[in-house]
Design a protein around this nucleic acid. Structure first.
Lengths: 196, 196
DNA sequence: ACGCTACGATACGGTATCGTAGCGTTAGCT
DNA sequence: AGCTAACGCTACGATACCGTATCGTAGCGT
């Protein structure tokens, strides 16, 4: 029930502009200094929008940050390359790029920690990770249907085996995500699926 | 050069007791509420030690938190079970237990995020992860020496393939670390090593 | 028993941040 | 052109911390 009112038309360009620059500033601050640096006053200073106006559009600081995080959740691309290896390599490279390119790259560690105590951010993280696993899942199903691998394959295990090491490098060991490392990981996943 | 002074004997039981209860309180707060909840005043209230005394033993808050984190870094156990599968399973189960048991379990997400902007904690995290990879590395070397797998095996890749999915479950997908999942992962690592 | 040292309690000064109020100004809409 | 809603500015009140100073007390070792 979208009640359309005569005078409060929700397309006032001032409103859309304010929201946009506020979120842009919040994302930039999150990227540069993490959740600790993204204060309302810093967002105000950076965006040029008065603090008062920020509170006119969001009830509190956390709501602003949730909007900022939502605004940059990347969508997984999922082309059917025709082969299992091609599909897996594509997803791995896609994820590697996301994990090493701002803004997502810089936001992941803070998001993982914040999700621990904030249910709203926890849901966002869950959506993000599920969205990353599904294409791998689908690629395995396609490979089964093509007869490339046996029907007993475990798509979920394949997704974990492929994505886990990539996240591990970004979050834990902090080593670079090289093309060779991606290739090795893809081969290992293929091997696991073929062994079934 | 341990200069032993006559009067300032470093074994005053009051000192050791204060340091102990302060760190215990800091760890408890970190576990329950993350880095944001571990304030000096909260540590003081929880431990019953005056804030003044905390600053008598550490120069600032971050130093206290670093000590707290250091105090609970678990040491990897590394028995030689005689077979590659046995070794890998042992490490995976060991890590799974650490990732699901406080205090380490609750601290990992915050540590990952804090390490991003704090070099000191970054070093601690690097030590922790390196300490986790090394036993896997060694197990692969032993298997090569036994002739169980070929000499061309890549120990680093094996470690990432084994540890990555476990951390992935704890930090990203938040699914339980089951025995079956561990078994699948170990088998996949074995398969990767055997394929070489 | 006595001196030294650690400790506790309290009170600060300083800073940062959140969220709100009041009021004048600007810009979109009709 | 004029009305209205959005905005900017400034100033707050309220907390929450950090880190320090002061001074009296209590426990440890000799």
């Amino acid at each position: 029930m979208v009640a359309k009112q005569a005078s409060s038309d929700p397309t006032d360009p001032r409103v859309t502009r304010s929201r946009r620059v506020i979120i842009e500033a919040a994302v930039a601050l999150l990227v540069e200094g993490g959740f600790g640096a993204a204060t309302v006053e810093a967002i105000s200073a950076r965006s040029g929008v008065a603090k008062t106006t920020i509170y006119r559009h969001w009830p509190d600081k956390d709501a602003v940050l949730r909007s900022a995080v939502e605004s940059i959740v990347p969508i997984a691309t999922a082309p059917d390359t025709g082969s299992l290896r091609g599909d897996l390599t594509h997803f791995a490279e896609d994820l590697a790029r996301i994990l090493t390119t701002p803004p997502t790259s810089a936001l992941i560690p803070g998001l993982v920690a914040a999700a621990e105590h904030d249910p709203g951010l926890g849901r966002l993280l869950a959506e993000f990770t599920a969205g990353r696993r599904r294409p791998v899942h689908d690629a395995v199903i396609r490979a089964v249907n093509r007869g490339e691998i046996s029907a007993g394959s475990n798509p979920e295990a394949a997704a974990e085996l492929l994505l886990g090491p990539l996240f591990y490098r970004r979050l834990l060991s902090r080593m670079p995500l090289t093309a060779g490392m991606i290739e090795h990981t893809v081969e290992a996943v293929e091997g696991m699926l073929a062994a079934k």
